[in-house]
Structures are given as C-alpha cells and as structure tokens.
Simulated scan of single mutants.
Amino acid sequence: MSVYSLYVINKSGGLIYNRDFSEAARVETNDSLRLASIWHSLHAIAGQLSPVPSCTGIELLEADSFNLHCFQTLTGTKFLLVVDPHASFIPALLQRIYELYSDYVMKNPFYETEQVIKCELFDENVELLIRRYLQQAT
C-alpha cells in the first residue's frame, strides 16, 4: 500500500499545500494547481446536484491505479489524499492530518488563514504520520 500525495485546498479553491510521498507521484506545480481548481469545482457541483439534502460533495474518487479521498472541514478547507486503491483506514488518516493542521498551522501566530502553508513542524509531522501509517499497513 502506498500514499502518493496530499493536497490542501482553501475554501476559495486555491492550492495552499501539496506534498508528494512517492517518486512515482511527482506532479508538476501547474498540474497540482489544475487538480485543486478542478476538484474544488467538481466538489461544489456534486454537492449541489446531490438528491441528498445534507451532501457536501465528493468524498471518494476511485480509479484503477489510485483513490482520491477528500475530507472537508466546516470552514470549507479540503484535504485530498491520493492513495493506492488497496489502502485502508484513509478517513482516520485524513482526520489525523487535519488535527496536525489544527495544531501546527492554525495555532501558528504567523499564519494567515487561506494563505500558502509554510510550516516546518506541520511538514515534519505529516511526514512522520505517513511513515507510521505505511509501516503499520505492511
């Protein structure tokens, strides 16, 4: 099992964080920006078209070679995790990433909401979390 990439999209659809965890998943910056924009639009449209009144949008996109999981916060920030199709416990992993975001980014007095995330402690702890997840999954 593998975790390929993590993206964080602000409520306006701007890419504020991206991290690749495998060499095979290296994505160009322009492609990451396009992915964020497209996902933000699809997520919003899906929420509006859904016959279920409380639907907030797409939570999982399944493909042959990857799955894309989305966790949306109450503020509209979206966490996208691109993983191997056989990966398990991804919602719990996304919840833990959100907790790290809350602890290291949102509590940082120098961080301005909706801006690009540049926080070494967040980077280090996300990397550590993903490494632990991959070790437990093997």
Rank of each mutant, 00 (worst) to 15 (best):
Y98I: 09
H40F: 08
L68T: 05
S50H: 07
C70W: 01
D31C: 09
S41R: 07
Q95N: 15
G76T: 08
S102C: 14
T77Y: 00
A46D: 04
C55H: 12
K107C: 08
L100I: 05
T56K: 12
N67Q: 11
A87T: 15
Y104F: 15
N108E: 06
S50W: 07
Q95S: 13
Q95F: 09
N108A: 04
H86V: 00
D84A: 02
L42H: 09
V52P: 03
S37F: 07
G57V: 07
T75V: 13
T75A: 14
I90H: 01
P85A: 09
D84N: 10
G57K: 11
T113A: 10
R34D: 10
Q72P: 04
G47W: 06
A92Y: 13
E99T: 10
C55D: 15
S88K: 10
L80T: 06
S37H: 05
I90Q: 02
D84R: 01
L100P: 06
S88G: 10
L74H: 10
V83N: 00
F79R: 07
E62I: 01
F79P: 08
H43Q: 14
Q95K: 13
L60E: 11
K107Y: 05
G57A: 08
S41V: 09
S37Q: 00
I38K: 04
T113W: 04
A63W: 07
T29F: 04
A44P: 02
S37M: 00
